[in-house]
Design a protein around this nucleic acid. Sequence first.
DNA 1: CTGAAAGCGCTTACAG
DNA 2: CTGAAAGCGCTTACAG
Lengths: 347, 347
Amino acid sequence: MKQVRIKDIAEKADVSIGTVDRVLHNRGEVAQKTREKVLAIAKEMNYQPNIVAQALTTKKTYKFSVLIPKGGQDNVYWLAHPKGIEKAVHELQPFSVEIDYRFFELHNEVDFLTKTREILENPTDGVILAPILKNEALHFCEELDRKKIPYIFIDTFLDNTNCISFIGEDAFQGGRVAASLIDFGIAPEKDILVVNLAKNLENTQHLNRRNQGFLSYFLDTGQNTGMKITVEIHQTDKETVEAKIDKVLKQNPNIGAILVSSAKTHVIARYLEKKRLDTILVGYEITRKNTDYLKKGIIHFLIGQRPMDQSEKAVKRLFEYLTSHTIALKHEFQPVEIINTETLSMY
Amino acid sequence: MKQVRIKDIAEKADVSIGTVDRVLHNRGEVAQKTREKVLAIAKEMNYQPNIVAQALTTKKTYKFSVLIPKGGQDNVYWLAHPKGIEKAVHELQPFSVEIDYRFFELHNEVDFLTKTREILENPTDGVILAPILKNEALHFCEELDRKKIPYIFIDTFLDNTNCISFIGEDAFQGGRVAASLIDFGIAPEKDILVVNLAKNLENTQHLNRRNQGFLSYFLDTGQNTGMKITVEIHQTDKETVEAKIDKVLKQNPNIGAILVSSAKTHVIARYLEKKRLDTILVGYEITRKNTDYLKKGIIHFLIGQRPMDQSEKAVKRLFEYLTSHTIALKHEFQPVEIINTETLSMY
DNA sequence: CTGAAAGCGCTTACAG
DNA sequence: CTGAAAGCGCTTACAG
């Protein structure tokens, strides 16, 4: 199947290539009849624009806005995303994609809002965002819808939006993986404690899915026969957490492992270190605070994903969408990864 | 920094663009003096060809030959490679890359040789190969060198060749990861058995690196204080293996975990299943025979890599090399992955 | 409302 | 040994 060119369409429709181009790009100024004819032929011949030629003539630079939390030595996870983005930009060469980064302070609504404003005030062809702050993000998406700017979610999914794609963790599977690791290390008769440690409303859907996955593992295949105890802690300060955990452990002396369903595993780790307990501890997310305890051997495993892959894909999907209006997959789950001291070194 | 075009060079050198092109492509027919002048200016201006324009005019289709083992339901690992290759080809669009697959029967020297012949007889711009059969592969590389066809290794590395790149596992790290998993699951005073189970000469360098990594982990950070016992088995038939293992286990009743440094973990798994032993078992490679025992819970972990990523990278590197003559990294190690029943489902 | 022409940066004959 | 011209498929003014 040889390439169909606009020239081929033009000949068949008995018009000039200029006219074909006008039709194809809705640049108006075309008789209705001609228009239909050209469109029909284009469809019939299955015309696909040659984006190399396109790139050469237009020399268009795509502008993508990226709205994600600020990374740092204490947050390697978000530090890795820009790298993935740069990688995608590099691989998209020789097309020209420019990234407008807008980093917001994690959990800072005001800052998030400021950054969304900035994005809306500047020209952009599409947005990649981590909609971590639900309400603010929802508003932002509505604005984007209104301006017909396409957007892709990474890391966190938000229902009831018109995002063209979501790329992130399969939280349910993440829960199962955590369960399987604990199951391997724990004595079969010991109990397991699940700590849902997060400020209220924070990403609860995600944490719930992890919990469901965790429990489903033991229903399906787990060896462990001990109790599965769940505790909710909605304040993450040291005192509250320690008091709660103290109490739970006192009531349940048979606990042999703890799973923290959020990124706050380090808070529990500090507690265990202080009390010199060698309970098995598993959590999520490759943050500095977590990996420090991983290296010390207090946290045994972290469940993570490859942030670079995630954002790299986001850029590519957005580009594909813009150039060919195709959407590969609405939900693209990234493989969950098991991280311990040894695999950490590869990050 | 705006794009430098051959036109710019031509103007500065006071020649025509045709001449510049001749110099840049070594198409001869240029006065030595002109040549030097143009080259100097090109370098000075840091000329980079616009590969979009290039692609548009030449409409060249790159032909890559891929020489890898035949995949199948019993060998998902090699089944995944073509997928990665297709992905790369897709992402390299709108450039045109055509793959000439040559699958050989694993461990079949004659078949491997036949396939190398076929590759050499057909026109190709570059080769991606898994040089699993060392001697045959070495010969093949020499031939490629002679014909000035560039080649990239995946999966296995071969010394003393002119490969432009190697993409594969960091075997040493793979050994450490295996060690850390066993260390997590085993009682501290139990012994660990390492089985080097492979036919003679088969990829021994790789297995050695894994062994070294394994031991280094316990020297550095391991909790386990038991003995580390290594046994070499150079015949992989059931009888030999069972006899040997029987003997070793009898002599060392305190063994709590077994690591198999090769892909033959399933042979040991079958043994453990038969004898109803629930020793911890860790091995390498996502083959069907291995994953079957993983699902049964006889093998606890497999250490693997992402074959798709591996071959995807290979195609991209080869393309980059051909279009811009740059080599990113001579050795590109892929992250090692921890695979158990739960992460397996993501393959 | 439509067509013809120029140009994006490069390569490929062809003429001299 | 060198230059001028045509062409890859598309888009962008411009003329009518």
